[in-house]
Design a protein around this nucleic acid. Structure first.
Lengths: 201, 201
DNA sequence: TCGGCATGTTTACAGTGGAAACATTATGGC
DNA sequence: GCCATAATGTTTCCACTGTAAACATGCCGA
């Protein structure tokens, strides 16, 4: 009973400590492993068993923390949205807000899709049909968008239309980049975004 | 030797005729069955075996016509792009070309995604990495886009940017609709597209 | 007529997601 | 401090998947 904290059985790499029956925080470890696997190696389906192996636990153990594979993927997707939101917020601040910030936010969106293709795809592909709609990790991102529209285009007549326009534009660019329909080219993205949202710095 | 045409063994529903060893045109039948399965019932992964069952043939028979499952999906995806192109061309003509036609083309794009979600997704998700790049079924659609930009916006300074902008915009709307991020609303789509491509009829 | 080639079938295998039953550990009420 | 009970992991099993290999069948040209 030396260390009594609640993560006794986790090794530094997230693997279960040898001989330990209980893991400590399997759920978190699984999510971490999933993200790692997603980050490196775009191809290759993310398998339940492979994930369990990474963490050093039996395959069915995961079912104590997720009702099924879908739920696990949902958790990963949510984390993806959270990261996207964070990156956008960061870009916004770094550019000092305003219309420049707005543009930076859009570019960050597309860059994220380019840098983390599998995660981006997963995050948006997940059908958010009958899940709890409120607590979605994408909230942050969307709120930032609305705020950005308001601040960057004060004179716009219909903010809803403008917001949707901006979102669709970057989302479309992101998907096209990600599906290799077009090449990733930050300058180009900047120009495209600038086309609608006028003479933005 | 009553009927000597090359589809002797196909029943009207695409199934193999009872007792016939050779199918007649399995490849086409499989693709048709795949499309049917894709059209009805968005959910549920499209399985090789299920498809073979539909056509009334053993699972491994498909390997005489497609190197692997991926290739089969590629064929379906290509058909999807072809249909999209056809619908856009039709919309363009119906609207009488020009800027009105351009807008109609964009709306048709999003509508297609809404009407055939699985097919649309499949069509664009397929990594066209090392496949034959030239003979893609999406050529039609893209050429139409470029032509449309030229005709609808004669005074535009950078046609490349404008074309990409238009494509990304509708593609983004399509993906957002398809992933249930936003609801399908033709009027809204019209407004959004109109925002950039000015006072279009 | 016959021989080869295209096309199907059967069988087999490794891998998958998931259900059940069982084992082990942590915890809260006495 | 003791112990029932809930939480968490493990084993075993099942149906299903994509695909390779070997075999069967039918068509078409020499």
């Amino acid at each position: 009973m030396a260390d009594k904290d609640n993560s006794v059985n986790i090794n530094s790499d997230g693997t279960k400590a040898a001989g330990a029956y209980h893991h400590g925080d399997l759920r978190a470890a699984v999510i971490a492993a999933g993200l790692k696997r997603i980050e490196e190696g775009e191809g290759g389906e993310l398998g339940l068993r492979a994930l369990a192996r990474d963490v050093g636990v039996s395959a069915t153990a995961l079912y104590r923390h997720f009702p099924d594979k879908e739920a696990l993927l949902d958790a990963l997707a949510d984390e993806g949205l959270r990261r996207l939101g964070a990156l956008q917020a960061q870009a916004w601040l770094k550019a000092g807000g305003g219309s420049a910030g707005f543009k930076a936010t859009g570019i960050a969106y597309v860059r994220f899709a380019h840098d983390e293709p599998a995660l981006f795809r997963l995050s948006f592909t997940r059908q958010m049909s009958e899940r709890k709609e409120g607590e979605d990790g994408g909230e942050v991102a969307y709120n930032l968008l609305r705020a950005g529209v308001g601040e960057a285009l004060p004179g716009v007549k219909d903010p809803d239309v403008a917001a949707l326009h901006a979102w669709a534009l970057v989302h479309g660019l992101a998907m096209l980049v990600l599906d290799r329909r077009i090449a990733w080219d930050e300058a180009m993205v900047g120009k495209v975004v600038g086309l609608t949202f006028g003479g933005i710095a």
